[in-house]
């Protein structure tokens, strides 16, 4: 079993880690190429960049937004993300691993903080899962991976916590360690191909939405009016051209 753990920490780790990094870069570039192509096909080429940047930043640090609308969910989600990012990168044992395998290291967080963050991630991860499963709207919107991910992400945290804190027999320890290493590798392997790719695509998501909103000329108008807005929201610039289709639709709406 020791050999399997070493394999998981050596070649397999390199495979998964590189695949994660390159996969995220790939999906980022492919998305940008796709967006440029979509923009070239559009008749309406106006993109409200400033508002998009504002909105993106707001979603990157969504505390205010979530606080006003869904405070409990917002808090849980932020805590989950913070722990998820900090513990794998700055746990002392992980830093030591980096130092021994690639020869450079960075600062590490104290053990106590790491332990608390780990517990927070485990708890919030499970809560997030339960929230999704218990809400009707959540269930309707969810795919399989939406249920699996919070649970899968929690696995290495649970095993890691057990390995470093509680007293268990050596055989069980190795088993836990193996689950820890392999689940972490599996997560890294799957990140670029599933929804966790949002860790790099977040800055683009608002832009993608903005561009795809205006696929056919006038589509934006139609969506806005269908949604019940009287006029354009402040962050959308009104398109300069009104095509015959648009005018026709407007006439129809006015007639009604």
């Amino acid at each position: 079993m020791q050999a399997w753990i070493e394999f998981g920490q050596g070649p397999l780790f390199r495979l998964c880690f590189v695949l994660m990094i390159l996969g995220l870069i790939r999906i980022f570039i492919l998305t940008i190429i796709g967006m440029v192509e979509a923009l070239n096909r559009n008749t309406d080429k106006i993109v409200p960049y400033r508002d998009l940047i504002q909105k993106t930043l707001m979603w990157l640090f969504p505390i205010k937004h979530l606080w006003t609308k869904r405070p409990f969910y917002g808090l849980i989600s932020v805590l989950f993300h913070v722990g998820l990012l900090i513990v794998p990168l700055f746990l002392a044992a992980h830093v030591l691993m980096w130092k021994n395998s690639v020869g450079f290291a960075w600062f590490s967080i104290p053990r106590g903080l790491a332990d608390w963050l780990t517990i927070i991630v485990i708890v919030t991860g499970i809560v997030l899962f339960l929230m999704r499963a218990s809400s009707k709207a959540g269930r309707a919107l969810s795919r399989k991976q939406d249920y699996i991910w919070p649970l899968l992400l929690v696995v290495p945290f649970i095993t890691g916590y057990i390995c470093s804190n509680s007293a268990i027999g050596p055989a069980a320890y190795q088993l836990m360690m193996m689950v820890h290493v392999y689940s972490a590798n599996l997560i890294m392997l799957m990140i670029p191909f599933t929804k966790i790719a949002h860790c790099i695509l977040v800055p683009l998501s608002q832009l993608v939405t903005a561009i795809s909103w205006k696929f056919p000329a006038g589509a934006g108008d139609m969506v806005i009016e269908t949604l019940g807005y009287k006029e354009y929201p402040t962050w959308v610039k009104k398109p300069r051209l009104e095509t015959p289709v648009e005018l026709k639709v407007k006439e129809e709406i006015n007639a009604e």
Binding site: L22, G23, R26
Partner: peptide, 20 residues
């Protein structure tokens, strides 16, 4: 095609790193 070729590229690169 773009999707497939880039996938082949990153898969090979990752396997390459693992095999070093």
């Amino acid at each position: 095609l773009r999707t497939k070729y880039s996938l082949a590229f990153i898969l090979a690169a990752a396997v390459g790193f693992a095999l070093l």
